[in-house]
Amino acid sequence: MLDTKKVRGGNGLASIEAEVDEILQSVEEITHDATKSFFDKYSENPNQLVLASWLETRCWREIDYVFLLNEQIRRYGMRFQRNHITLLAKQSFQEAEHYEALGKAVESLGGIVPTSVPVAAVPWSNFLWECMERHHLAAIAAWYVSETSASGSFAPTYVGAERHGHMDVVKIYKQIEIDEKFHTGLGRQVLSTYAETDEDRDEILRAMRGMRDIAWKSFTPEVVAATMRAA
């Protein structure tokens, strides 16, 4: 397995590489634990609507990435090499595919595919868009962390979903896992290629630290329970 943190790009992250990698590792680990915690709780009372609610925030992330990536290209794309515009657009297309696929899974579980930000995803979404406003690399830094957090959720999702026969969920996330490697590799390459100043690096770290503190929370059983109570 190749490590997308080693993707070739520029030297823009060299001086902050240690903290960048520490953030990525910690968010992956905490998301793994949060996901495992969710499925452990789910096993106590496997109500499909609970799983559907858990997937709804995942589903929203996919379509919010579509909006975000297209806005990233519209606002800042002319600062990038053309191949990076193509790759960001390709990522956007894949995120739309994930939204469609996860939407089918949510519906099959009796849930409702979100068409606006679910309550549990509000802090995550707000932070991403705030990053977009602040700096041309900040939103990319934030979704780089968010995508990496998702990587931590795959293994416990496969175990938990398979245990209850939700093989469609497993199949969808197997494809998402493949695409996430592209997305995290692209995030790393774009950041390392275009980060030039200390201000750029400060904004990248601010976005990554902020997303580290947010990204994993909607994976927890507590947030899902609270969301369902609110509904």
């Binding site: 397995m1 190749l2 390709k90 894949q94 493949i178 695409d179 490697k181 592209f182 590799g185 390459q189």
Partner: peptide
């Protein structure tokens, strides 16, 4: 199996 088709993901 592939994803990026651009030499980034390694899939």
């Amino acid at each position: 199996t592939n994803s990026c088709r651009a030499g980034i993901c390694g899939t």
